[in-house]
Design a protein around this nucleic acid. Structure first.
Lengths: 333, 333
DNA sequence: CGCGTTTACGTCGTTCGTAACGATA
DNA sequence: TATCGTTACGAACGACGTAAACGCG
């Protein structure tokens, strides 16, 4: 058994049991992989794949077990490489982040700019997707960090650190009647207007609709989109009243919109950053986290990383004030 | 990085940082190990050991981290080998057990006889030691099973399955006055005699002395030994009254001793069998467990093995009757 | 001077890539 | 016939073992 053989094995499994594809992914020859797989099966005296003719058509039970353990092994190999590279003072490597549109568009740009200045040799990868896609990327170990909001239950085996809180805002065109409104906005008023807001994720749905439901209201959602830019576009067209993350309100929006605080109408949201509990955090990774939320010092992050359960981590943060970002755009850049 | 290199690394660490010793342990040449270590350090760009001249004198922090992860890797490699060998129907391998004297002497012989009949090609290793030594053997992964009594807290990361309960007995020579006693034995009576019993382990001490302490008594322990045979010898010499495991009472003892039940005097003990949660159980291993305690069927064992915490395992056994062995020697062979 | 490690070197085995072949749809 | 996997073969690399040199106590 060789690390190579396990690497090849995983590549085959991750390439849809196509050995040629695996060879291309690994920049090596196809017969080499074929042969190593055969050698591995020979040594273990177990068929790892079922064959139809010469093609691999399925993974045997033994195969899936071996593959699962091979993954664990390769993860530890990666960890050894990471920590060694870190301890030898190298400031290069890859930082892979999976995140949602809002974070990628309104939060991360400045953070990433600072990070690149500090670590010019670190290769940055940014994957944008839904919560479910992020969960998949992070469990498959293709990204180092997940940055998302809500739906913590999608990420059971991650260490989740709260980054900051934020509230929703209500966006209307300047000539809208709500723009001239005096006094406090409330949910019954909002329920009278057609609304434009985010696509409900499987888990996030509750917090928005529930806010109306507890007051016996049914919101009239006429349009949903994945990102605030599209919502703004349609709000500007007069389709409806926009409800977006306060983070999404930018300087230039003042010309077209009036933003009304909705922090009393909907529960406050938390953007957190998560990473696999069993992975080594390189120096630049904890630094990234502190750039992401300055109160998350390297010490605090490493302290949380060694804790066993999310419960303990939450307890660690229970007596720490998590900052709030955004709002009606006054303080957010 | 190679599995070989990691294997060599662990051998060095386990040989007191003596490369020559490591080479002998692995039946290979010493320069080979030297070279691979150098290559590994070169690839990781980290010193894994501190050197004094040419000798290795200590493990660097980086080294201990790498070693820890290498152990995890080699463990998974072993697991892959085990399950593959098992699935390919091989009934050979090694079964390594660490246990105490009482189990090794009075319980295991018959079990092992049956096991050897069933699996003649499996190599059996039996390590005898104190609870602390057993704990060390099992955490260092040199044995597959630990079979012991009490002191469960010494084995936090093991899956512990209750095998059977047993009680202590009081052993006196035939001509002793207690042998002619009518009625029930009690602790105040025992406290009047010099006692001979087991060496108190760090954790087991409480259950024996506490039984006296709660009645405000102080036992007069004149002699302690690791095994019942020695206790019997001294009891026969008239040194004192013996208190041993019921398991230790054999047919031949009837000629010399009178055994009095002590099951109402001391708390009942449980002998359990434990194995590392993260290790693969080969077919012959679960069969051994069912030989050890017939009610521990392969299904039950495998069910317990996948549970996350000892609490869940204990819950699994809460509604199962664990058998009792020994007693005053009537039913024990 | 013994013990342990490193260096040097020759041999052997293994891996890898190219090319040709085979099977399957 | 196109796609994918296996076989065959030669070249290159790497691992291993022996022998000798080096450093340290």
């Amino acid at each position: 058994m060789t690390l190579q053989q396990l690497r090849y094995l995983l590549a085959i499994a991750d390439s849809g049991l196509n050995i040629t594809a695996a060879s291309e992914r690994l920049y090596t020859s196809q017969p080499g992989i074929s042969k190593q797989l055969k050698l591995l099966e020979q040594e273990l005296k177990v068929q790892l794949f079922t064959r139809k003719g010469k093609s691999l058509v399925d993974i045997t039970p033994a195969g899936s077990d071996v593959i699962a353990r091979a993954r664990k092994i390769m993860l530890e190999v990666q960890n050894i490489r990471s920590l060694a590279s870190d301890l030898s003072g190298e400031e290069e490597g890859t930082l892979s982040i999976a995140t949602t549109h809002t974070q990628a568009r309104y939060v991360l740009p400045e953070i990433i700019k600072n990070f690149r200045d500090r670590y010019p040799k670190v290769n940055l990868e940014l994957h944008q997707g839904t919560s479910e896609q992020i969960a998949e990327l992070v469990t498959n170990n293709v990204v180092d960090f997940a940055i998302a909001t809500g739906s913590r239950n999608l990420f059971p085996e991650l260490v989740l650190l709260p980054g900051f809180h934020w509230d929703r805002i209500v966006l209307v065109p300047k000539n809208h009647e709500l723009a001239r409104m005096d006094g406090q906005l409330n949910l019954p008023m909002l329920a009278n207007y057609p609304l434009v807001t985010y696509v409900f994720s499987l888990t996030g749905e509750s917090s928005f609709k529930n806010a109306f439901a507890v007051q016996g209201l049914e919101p009239d959602v006429v349009f949903t989109a994945r990102d605030a830019d599209i919502i703004k576009t349609y709000v500007l067209m007069g389709i409806g009243v926009g409800i977006v993350a306060g983070l999404a309100y930018e300087q230039g929006d003042k010309e077209n919109f009036v933003a009304l605080s909705a922090e009393d109408l909907f529960p406050r949201c938390t953007t957190w950053i998560g990473f696999r509990r069993d992975s080594v955090l390189r120096g630049y990774m904890v630094d990234f986290i502190s750039l992401f939320a300055s109160y998350l010092t390297p010490e605090l992050t490493r302290e949380a990383a060694v804790l066993g359960s999310q419960g303990e981590i939450d307890a660690l943060f229970s007596d720490i004030t998590v900052p709030t970002r955004g709002g009606c755009g006054q303080e957010d850049v």
